[in-house]
Amino acid sequence: MRMAQAVIATGLPATTRRARRSWRGWGFVGPFMAVFGLVFLAPIAYSLYLSLFRQQLVGGNAFVGIENYQRALGDAQLWAAFGRVALFLAVQVPIMLGIALLVALAIDGGRLYGASFFRISIFLPYAVPAVVATLMWGFMYGTRFGLVGNIEDALGVALPDPLAPDLVLASIGNIVTWEFVGYNMLIFYSALRVIPTTLYEAAEIDGAGPWRVITAIKLPAIRGAMVVATIFSIIGSFQLFNEPAILQNLAPNAITTHFTPNMYAYSLSFSGQQYNYSATVALIMGLLTMVVAYVVQLRGMRKEA
């Protein structure tokens, strides 16, 4: 700040000012900027470029302007997929974060027997690759040879098929919750650990009970962590792909090729060779995700202030 003022005060011509500027800072940000440009900005620019063209099996490549975007806005399959992940977000994320918060508070409360074992076993599913986890759950969901089938045989009851079209989204939600409760718990737990113990001592002196400590101290203190976890979960929900894509082999009719926006983009480009429209879909979804995540962040920060 002081340097800037000094520069302004001297009022030297622009060329001289530039010559004096130190490039040392670029040495620090340069490597990051290079990688950022290469793996983030360049692909987005390329997708933007692609989205303005249309490559056809018959007729070749042509510039079409915003035609792909117009098509996307009226694409019922895309918006159905978007609605599906939005529903997933509205139901699964609160459940997952709620469980994660409960577990984190329980471990942090210090009254849990074997807290460290409990913590590691809750976290362990996150260490299982999503593909493996989904295959494992897929086998359990099987009504013929899977766990569901075994329960039906053992108890002589008819359970609903977890892979039927109207239940499969809930089944995927169950898998995702199982995978990510531990991860979110860890975010909450580490935020809880940095709360100064003096606050708890003060609360005790004031005669606050455990419940009051949670609502008055712990929850306000970890609001930042909760916003972060929520934003991660929003992004994760909109990008839902692995779990449905793998379960599709087991339930080909329940999970369509346009089940989630990402699956839709995948099938457009790799089954349909419609790379241009696929890039358009990806850009629109990226933009929507950013908007939703930004709104949540703004709201979260306003509450904090």
Partner: peptide, 17 residues
């Protein structure tokens, strides 16, 4: 190839609905 890839999206629904 593409037509077959969307078979379950369309005809496949007859097996579950």
């Amino acid at each position: 190839v593409y037509a077959n890839s969307i078979f379950n999206d369309t005809v496949g629904q007859a097996y579950v609905s």
